[in-house]
């Protein structure tokens, strides 16, 4: 699948395109097919996102999974500070990125 991601312009938070808007959770990302660049251009112009780009991903049991480790770390948070990640209560969350 193709996933569209970027950062929130004002807060810098990592965001994922859900089909209707931007979410902090990659689990809510949708397959943008070949529409990624068009959505990116539109959302960029509307200043709802900064530096959007399309990445490869696959659909796993627990939802969309970015193909590259960098994007998985973006989706989770720093693996060395899981307390600051999106899964602070899960000590094994770091395994998901590998």
């Amino acid at each position: 699948m193709k996933i569209l991601t970027g950062n929130d312009l004002k807060t810098g938070a990592v965001t994922w395109w859900t089909g209707e808007g931007w979410s902090l959770h990659v689990a809510e990302a949708v397959d943008v097919g070949d529409q990624g660049d068009a959505i990116a251009a539109r959302e960029n112009a509307a200043r709802r996102v900064v530096s959007p780009y399309v990445i490869d991903g696959e659909t796993a049991a627990d939802g969309p999974r970015p193909a590259h480790i960098k994007e998985r770390i973006r989706a989770l948070g720093p693996t060395v500070r899981l307390d600051l990640s999106l899964k602070p209560a899960d000590p094994a969350a770091g395994n998901w990125v590998i």
Partner: peptide, 10 residues
């Protein structure tokens, strides 16, 4: 001004 866009935020 030292402001980057990094992996998780500015």
């Amino acid at each position: 001004n030292g402001l980057y866009l990094q992996l998780h935020a500015y």
